[in-house]
């Protein structure tokens, strides 16, 4: 029983890592809390939904394509709007992304309506019976893909010139500028990268959870909690935070009943902010 709950939690946690990775990246590098993040995830899920209904593309295969589509949109948004206030105090940047999110969410409600939709895989992927525990294959694939995405982000930051530039800006913006890094362009790149990751994560969620503009706030809340749990601005932190939240939600749903899982996460967030605002793996530098 406990093994099954742990397995459920870990499966969920892998997905959570992909949900939070982009949010953490933007927060760490741009020092902005991107309230649009949840809506980006939902937008990605709609992308997967429409690709699936129109062309029968599997949502897992659609993830890279939808992510790539999101990239230029987010890049433009960052260069034209957010970069204008990126150095301003928290109140201004937070209010800006709140306003942008109101617009995007309203547009999605108009375009897609609030009905819940879901990608139904045909044929269903079935379950994997390991004796003591039973794993749904669709969740397993989604979690594997999402961990792959996070791994891709990590290697991008580690191994490429662009990635090193992003890390440099995160560590010390002024020094990075002196080293010849175009800080504004790096901001735009980071934001676009994070949005692509969010959209791709949305594709992976599409066959598992109902899709609706209303869901964006939930995803955003989870990204908050994971960032604070794992510590801001590190890829391993996001993975740890994601798994921690997944396991805790499964255990919480067992002991308190599923309707309190959300409250539990938020209480945990408040508690963690009180005692350890830097998170479980918190430290400076994004690597």
């Amino acid at each position: 029983m406990i093994a099954q709950i742990l397995a459920n939690g870990l499966l969920l946690g892998g997905l959570y890592a992909a949900i939070a990775a982009g949010f953490s990246l933007v927060w760490g590098v741009l020092n902005i809390i991107n309230l649009l993040h949840g809506s980006f995830i939902v937008l990605g899920a709609y992308g997967a939904f429409f690709l699936h209904t129109a062309a029968g593309v599997s949502p897992f295969a659609a993830a890279p394509a939808v992510g790539a589509l999101m990239f230029p949109l987010a890049y433009a948004l960052q260069t034209m709007v957010i970069n204008r206030v990126v150095d301003r105090p928290v109140l201004i940047t937070l209010t800006l992304t709140f306003g942008l999110n109101l617009i995007l969410n309203n547009l999605m409600l108009l375009a897609f309506k609030a009905d819940y939709r879901k990608v139904v895989l045909d044929p269903p992927l079935g379950i994997l019976d390991l004796g003591a525990i039973v794993l749904p294959v669709d969740r397993l694939v989604a979690t594997a893909c999402s961990l792959l995405l996070v791994l891709a982000l990590w290697s991008l930051l580690r191994l490429t010139r662009i990635g090193r530039a992003i890390v440099a800006v995160r560590m010390d913006r002024d020094a990075a500028a002196l080293m010849g890094i175009d800080v504004r362009a790096t901001y735009a790149l980071t934001f676009a990268l994070a949005a692509s990751l969010a959209a791709a994560a949305g594709c992976l969620l599409a066959p598992l959870f109902p899709i609706s503009p209303v869901a964006s706030a939930t995803y955003l809340g989870k990204a908050f909690v994971i960032c604070v749990l794992g510590g801001l601005g590190s890829v391993p932190g996001v993975v740890v935070g994601g798994f921690a939240l997944g396991v805790m939600e499964s255990l919480g749903a067992l002991s308190l009943g599923p309707e309190h899982a959300g409250t539990l996460a938020f209480l945990l967030l408040l508690l963690l902010l009180l005692v350890r605002p830097s998170g479980l793996l918190g430290r400076r530098g994004f690597d």
């Binding site: 201004i92 209010t95 800006l96 306003g99 942008l100 109101l102 617009i103 969410n105 309203n106």
Partner: peptide, 14 residues
Amino acid sequence: HEGALGLLVVLLVL
């Protein structure tokens, strides 16, 4: 309604 409020916020902040 909400989108218009959002637009107001964005213009105001910018």
